[in-house]
Structure formats: structure tokens, C-alpha cells
Design a protein around this nucleic acid. Sequence first.
DNA 1: GCTGTCGCTTGTCGGAAATCAAGCTGTAGC
DNA 2: GCTACAGCTTGATTTCCGACAAGCGACAGC
Lengths: 230, 230
Amino acid sequence: MDPADWEIIKSTPLFGAMASQTAEQLVGSSQPRFYDKGVALFHQGAPATAFFIVLDGWVKIYRTTPDGLEVVLHVFRQGETFAEAAIFLGGRYPASAETVTPSRLLKVDGETFRSRIEERPVLAMSMLASASYQLKFLVEQIEQIKVRSAPQRIADFIVRMTRVRQGPAVIELPFEKGLLANRLGMKPESLSRALQQLRARGVSVERGTVKIVDVRQLLDFVEYANEDDE
Amino acid sequence: MDPADWEIIKSTPLFGAMASQTAEQLVGSSQPRFYDKGVALFHQGAPATAFFIVLDGWVKIYRTTPDGLEVVLHVFRQGETFAEAAIFLGGRYPASAETVTPSRLLKVDGETFRSRIEERPVLAMSMLASASYQLKFLVEQIEQIKVRSAPQRIADFIVRMTRVRQGPAVIELPFEKGLLANRLGMKPESLSRALQQLRARGVSVERGTVKIVDVRQLLDFVEYANEDDE
DNA sequence: GCTGTCGCTTGTCGGAAATCAAGCTGTAGC
DNA sequence: GCTACAGCTTGATTTCCGACAAGCGACAGC
């Protein structure tokens, strides 16, 4: 496997804490694979046989409601792992996954991973850290949906896309706006209108490119002091 | 500790799978404690030193937003554990907890728990199962908020309060309606009105008592085939 | 170059829930 | 018993977002 890939793997919450050789043992046998856009990786309710590491591209996690609606829970990117907690919950995926851009993913077998954990308790700690990280993410998302307006949710998403914390910034929207709208819990039309409203706060959008006059101003808008973050 | 308490502890996803003596080792030193209504157990952002098992009463988990709003994530009851995943995430609670009725809780020290896990990998598996259970719960809650109407969310909550799956049922609302409204992501006024609407579907409310003419009818209303639930 | 399609935007309308505000009811305290 | 208050309901109004529909622009295929 490419050394650059190892860098990515080591940057995940799951593998970052463990010794390199431990990580190699776990994923060593599996090779990265290319996936086209729109490839289904697994479906909700199916037996959870593996989890994934994103080396490149974007992968959406979503649920399909009884009446056929799609609810996007998260869109994972490079350096993130997903479905790693699923292999413990009665062995079933609670949601579905699909690539939204051409992607390169590393698929890790759940069974071997599970048996490794039984041998090495340190692994379990990594796993738990990773699971609670996901937990925190979902908890924050619920807060977002419940108390933030549509423009605030978008502003929050945008400022999370950049490391800049003051002054101007330019970011690229990584995937289609329709998907972004779903991820943020709204319709594409609402996303469009909400972006309009953000113009008054120094945000201009041209195709997939977003220009921000002053990031701080946006941060004020989403009221994210985020004292409890790190 | 009371044998009945052990029954409760063994009924949790966390302790249910492990050997009795293992569970005893873990919680053995700590004794159940009574708490008044409205007692703060921990605050979001604080170092996570312990987690809890509910033996009696109800405990709300909530987040306080920068502008002072309270967002209730869940209200835990007898036979549920909470904050057990928190002791792994950089050791900080992602939310706050407070009793909403007089309660009896068992507080388990996180440090000893963590060191036990390092000795016994099986424990880690229980822990992971429990964490992924919470994960699934949150995932479902996001789906609820995004796609269900207020009356549907209430109907769902109500039918989950009873084991009855057809015919009539009577249930007691376990805590104040204001709290229930928050938990369901709406205002108390909306809860009141939504309950009105449910009268047309055979639901009558008198004080804290809810009478249902036909549970099946409600289940149809929330469209919960729940194939993946079992 | 034309045309069809897809993703996105814009407009209008309607409905669900929030907001503001008033009343109602049971309970605790004096 | 009376009062005060908290929890709940009810009413009127506003706001936000979704539904539906039309139009625009980019891009692929012929």
C-alpha cells in the first residue's frame, strides 16, 4: 500500500492511537479499491461484515424511510472511517452507504477485526474512542437540526470546511447541492434561498465555489463559541 | 445491593452479556444512591469521571446551546445506562444530565472501568455493543425529526411506551409534557395541539393518562413497519 | 450546432409549527 | 379558604419551509 495511504489511515481517530504495526496487521491483507460514483457499499439491515476507510472521494450514509424517502446522516471524506461501530450491533448496519463521487476505499473485514480486539485490549480502546466520536457527532447534529435555522446550518457547514477563523476565505463545495441540502435537513430549493440570505453576511456563491468576506462574521452568525470542542 | 437491582443491571445492553461475577466486580464497590428531582449529575464539557445506571426514576440528557436554549436528547429510564461512551472521548461529557423525577442511580467509576477493560477484552465487546446501540438510537432519532410530523412523533413515542401491539391500551406519561415536547423537538403548545389531532385517531388524554382505542391504528399512522428492528 | 437532460434557481402558494398572549386548573403555602 | 404560581391549553398571528411549477444554464450525445 502507498505510504501516503498510511498517512491517511493514521490520521483517523480509530487508527491514529495505535502502533503502526498493529494497524498494519489489521488492514494488511486488504487492498484499496476504486469505486465509481453511485456505488452501493451496503444496505441498512444487512449483516455488517466490514467497515471502511475513505482514502479518496466522498461517501454518504443514509437511511431509507418506510415511505421511500432518503435521509442523509453524514457524508464522509478522506481520513474518516465509517460503519466501524456497526459490526458490534447484532452485526447489522443501521443505515446504507453509497459513494457520491468516484472514490478509493479500504474495506476492513469485521470478523478479523473483532477477533483481533479480543487479543489486544488496546484496540478496543481505539474502537471505543472512535465510537464515542461518532456519538458526539450525532449528538451535535441533533442539536443543529433542532435549534438552528437553515441559513445557520449552512453557515456552520461552510465554516467547518475551512481552517480559516478570521478574514476572507474561499471554499469548494465538495459534492452536489442536492445532497448537501439533504445532509443539512432541507430541500434543494431551501438551500438555494438560504444561500441567498447569506449574501447579506458576506457569502457569495458561484457554481460550486463559495467566497466568504469575513469568516468571523459567519462564526458569530452561527453563534459557535465551541468552548467544549477539543 | 438488592437482588432486584441486579436484575435491572443485567437487563442493560452493557451488562447483560457479561458474566454475573464480572459485572459484580465492576460495580461492586459502588452503592445505589437516591437523588431528588432536578439534581444535576454532570455538565457538558466537564471531565467524564463516571457513568450511570438507572435503577428508578427518569434522567434527561440535554445540551445547552450558546444562546441558552436547552435541547433534550433523551430521557433515560430504569434499565438503561448513560454516558458510558463519554469516558472514552477525551474524557469529556458531550452533554449534561439531570434527574427529572426522584431517582435511584448507580454511579460507576470510569477509571476503574477503563482499567478493567484493558484486562478483559470481553468487556470491551459489551461496551462496544452498548455504544453502537446508542448510536443506532441517535440515528433513528435524526430520521424521526427530519421526516415525521409532530403528531407522528408523539404517536411513535406513545406506542413505544406500551408492549401492546393491537387493540386498546392505557399508558401513563412518565414526566412533564414540557419535557416531552422538548425531547420530541417541539414547543409545549405544539405538543398540546398535536395531541388534539390524535383524538381523531383514537387517542384521548386526561392529565398524564393516555388512552388508546386501537394501537394498531396508531402504528399504521407512524408507518413503522420496523422491519429492521425485531 | 441542436436537443435533451440534469442540476440549480426563482416564483407563488399553502401548511405546519413557532411566537405572542391570554385564560384555565390543580396544587402548595399561608 | 384564599392566593400565588406552575403547568397546560387555547386563540390569533407570523414565520419558515415544503410543494409545485416554470425557467435557466451547463453539458453530453447525436
